[in-house]
Design a protein around this nucleic acid. Structure first.
Lengths: 226, 226
DNA sequence: TGCATCATTCGATCATAGTCGAAGCATGCA
DNA sequence: TGCATGCTTCGACTATGATCGAATGATGCA
């Protein structure tokens, strides 16, 4: 025993309700101040500050000072996908949740997962990409085919520009609500950007929900049918 | 707040050192008895029993009674992949390092693993080899195809010379940072030698880091795209 | 039946860590 | 300079939960 990385160190950081709520809030991808996170966590400011110090020390979040504000954010997409993985388990083995409200339904349909799209729409897109051989799945590796490059170019995304970055182009991220994979990585982030750019959807305030417009929903349906 | 599943409930289960060690032991896939898990967790039998009751109640493990033994196992692959995700974060945000510095990023990108390449670049290479059918994966065994021999010859490696050695030509090695396989064995070592020979990269002093030059990085990218 | 083994439950102890009020620092603004 | 705001630190309190010894159940074996 005692080999490998220290699981409990990281897990215990997420294991406190206040911290878990803060991290959930940061899953929106936006940086938040200590006061905002205190509200999200349902604790007082001193308590929140203590929690945030631990999360920072533990490497899960980063902080950037701007004037008298301190903005906290998740330290990377790896942390985000870990939180999604935990959410997946929590949702599947979780106690029977009371009737899911409208907010939950909206979250299930489409939400932000750090910097890319998650939810039913995201899984539908991923299925389409796989079915049309636009991406190739090799175990947990995801690669874009030539055909896929063209498809994304049609959608308005310059893939070659993304490839130069250090960040992996494609990654599969397990969707906790649908329990299947959706597209993450640089390409996933670019796709979400493009959806906002086309005004097919907008961010709901103070929430991870991505609200599609009627037109956007129709356009998106058409996108993943062709 | 209070959106989505209850993260902290699951995370706090993993957040205790004794339970985390038990879960790690169960990652082998085999079912273990309560006494064995007490040993793995480094706690007494009553304590272990209490922990296992919580893990079972929480849905992370299942128990099957066989005679006077009770065998515990992970309740599914979803739990396993969650634990992998947490391990990944735990490994990446080092136990001490507060913020991963440039050195850590470099280690993740490319490092020496005994005598062959490891890290993101190595995994990318391995994925390419598999995707292009240059190697064949048979469980743990890795064999070079005819097409693969030609590919390595083009890269400047005389495969037939390596085959005469006692050492196995190809082996798969699990990458700790990326947690996927990369190429080891005589061929893996030869590939790293060749990378140094071509001056695509150099060893960083007193470190495992393999620092790619800008040109080397571009050449390497081209290598695993064709 | 009696005994040994494997495991859980109970009861008591103890340490860790979450919590907040009050005070202290730093920044921005007038 | 003075004051308000945003955040952290300190100190004290409290509760949760991890731990184990002893007792109790359950199963297998002779």
């Amino acid at each position: 025993m005692k080999e490998g990385p220290d699981l409990s160190r990281i897990a215990s950081l997420v294991g406190d309700p206040a911290r878990a709520n803060m991290l959930s809030a940061l899953m929106s991808g936006t940086a938040l101040t200590a006061s905002e996170l205190a509200l999200e966590g349902g604790v007082g400011l001193p308590t929140a500050s203590s929690h945030l110090a631990k999360l920072t020390e533990g490497g899960l979040v980063t902080v950037t000072t701007q004037g008298r504000h301190r903005y906290y954010a998740l330290s990377g997409s790896e942390v985000a996908s870990m939180l999604e993985a935990i959410s997946g388990v929590a949702a599947s083995v979780g106690p029977k949740r009371v009737r899911p409200g409208p907010r939950d339904n909206a979250m299930r349909e489409a939400r932000v997962c750090y910097d890319h799209l998650a939810g039913e729409k995201a899984v539908a897109l991923f299925d389409h990409l796989g079915g049309q051989k636009l991406i190739r799945l090799n175990g947990d590796a995801v690669t874009l085919t030539r055909k896929g490059q063209d498809w994304f170019a049609d959608f308005g995304i310059d893939v070659s520009a993304l490839e130069t970055k250090r960040r992996p182009l494609c990654r599969a991220c397990l969707d906790w609500s649908v329990r299947r994979s959706h597209l993450a990585g640089a390409l996933g982030a670019a796709a979400l950007d493009r959806i906002f750019e086309l005004k097919w959807a907008r961010r709901e305030k103070d929430s991870r929900v991505v609200a599609f417009t009627p037109r956007g929903r129709a356009e998106f349906e058409r996108l993943i049918r062709t």
